[in-house]
Amino acid sequence: MPPAQPLAAAPIQPVNKGAPLLTVQDLKVYFEVGGNRLLGKEPGVVKAVDGVSFDLRAGETLGLVGESGCGKSTLGRAVLRLLPIHAGRVVWLGQDLAKLDDRSMRGVRRDMQIIFQDPLASLNPRMTVGEIIAEPMQTFQPGLNKAQVRDRVKAMMAKVGLLPNQLNRYPHEFSGGQCQRIGIARAMINEPKLIVCDEPVSALDVSIQAQIVNLLMDLQREMGMSLIFISHNLAVVKHISHRVMVLYLGKIMEIADRNSIYYDPLHPYTHALNSAVPLPDPDQERGRSRIVLKGDLPSPLNPPSGCPFRTRCPRATEICAQVMPDLLPAKPGHLVACHHADTPRGN
């Protein structure tokens, strides 16, 4: 097993300043729950993603943060059209994915892949590692012969830190970190342009998390793909991301470059998330003051009026209950949805 390692200090991959690779416009993903129309009882509606818009450029990593139930994973899967979209547009290289039929969408999927949260559960236990990694090539590159497939599988295994002679083993013979490396190899074997990383390190030990994050950054530098990185670990998101988007009950609270989000946040929810990140220095950790949010996350079936964060916000006033704030630029490249973004911190 590779030795434990800290998060790398190397700079992240520069972003291509050209046209966006991906454009998401006013995306909405709703789910109906409960109810029985035969008995006249209308179902409830969960607005898991409610009007989200952003761009993603080639080679860029966008981090998604927020509490459980804020819509991060739903947003990531909707972008890949793994979940139905209620409204809005997902434009990939100029194509509106909602307008593509299944056959056309299949051609796009080679360039859009996903890495799942649970390493072992995402792998077929009846297939060998070689078969798992080779499966996407058999789908999208059927013209390759067996020797070519085997060579590419071995080369990819070496890239992600696995021994090529392990390709005939089964997933249960590997550790959690090794299984996640298998999942990464499968996602990258066709050299996609976009990978959605759906909490890829949350099920791993801290030292293994660092290895996987550093591996993703190394592969991004080598292959140039874009990442949407979803995580509860704000330190990891800060390390790997160019920009960070903060979600709360399906809406964007703040989006900016990683340094602005962590060192100069404007939304009170972002302040609270930063306050929850432990500091490595014990003296600083003991002496810091924390922001403790009151109450639990409201039900997405019955969200608060106005700003969804107002029921837990220390800055909330009457206007917060009446009007949902627009996501507006507070500084160049720094957008925030808050009526009191200019209120001094702590007030």
Rank of each mutant, 00 (worst) to 15 (best):
Q322H: 12
Y262K: 06
K238Q: 10
H172R: 00
P314I: 06
D281W: 11
F309S: 05
I212Y: 08
C70N: 06
R103T: 14
P3Y: 07
I230E: 05
A134L: 02
V246I: 11
A78T: 00
P119V: 06
T23A: 12
L7T: 09
G44H: 15
D101P: 11
L82G: 01
A341R: 15
G143M: 00
R77K: 10
V246S: 08
N124I: 06
D26V: 04
Q141F: 11
A276P: 04
N190W: 02
G333M: 04
D257L: 08
T139K: 09
S53T: 09
N145K: 03
N165W: 07
N214L: 08
D151N: 13
D264C: 14
A87F: 00
P298S: 08
V336S: 03
Q148V: 05
R186M: 07
N233L: 06
C307W: 11
P314Q: 03
R77F: 06
L273D: 08
V153R: 00
R221H: 15
I212Q: 07
H242R: 05
L219Q: 10
K17C: 14
M217W: 13
A256K: 08
Y30I: 04
D342W: 13
Y269H: 01
R312E: 01
I255N: 03
L327P: 12
K99Y: 10
D342E: 15
H86E: 13
D296R: 07
I184D: 06
C307P: 05
D326G: 14
C307Y: 11
H86Q: 14
K193N: 11
L297M: 13
T311C: 11
R221D: 14
K41V: 15
L21P: 13
S53A: 04
G250I: 07
R126D: 00
L279A: 09
F54Y: 08
K159Y: 12
G94R: 06
Q117F: 04
E135C: 01
H271L: 06
E42I: 14
L249E: 12
V46Q: 06
G35C: 14
C70R: 05
L247Y: 00
E135H: 00
D50V: 11
P142K: 00
V244F: 03
V196E: 02
I115Q: 05
V90D: 01
Q180T: 02
G94P: 09
V277C: 04
G346R: 01
R126C: 00
V52M: 04
R37E: 08
L328F: 15
L75A: 02
R290D: 08
P2A: 14
W92M: 02
N145Q: 02
R106K: 13
I228N: 01
R106I: 05
D205Y: 07
S275R: 00
H339S: 13
K17I: 14
L204E: 03
D257P: 04
P164R: 03
T128R: 09
E60G: 12
K99F: 09
P282K: 11
N233P: 00
A256H: 08
M105V: 05
P43T: 07
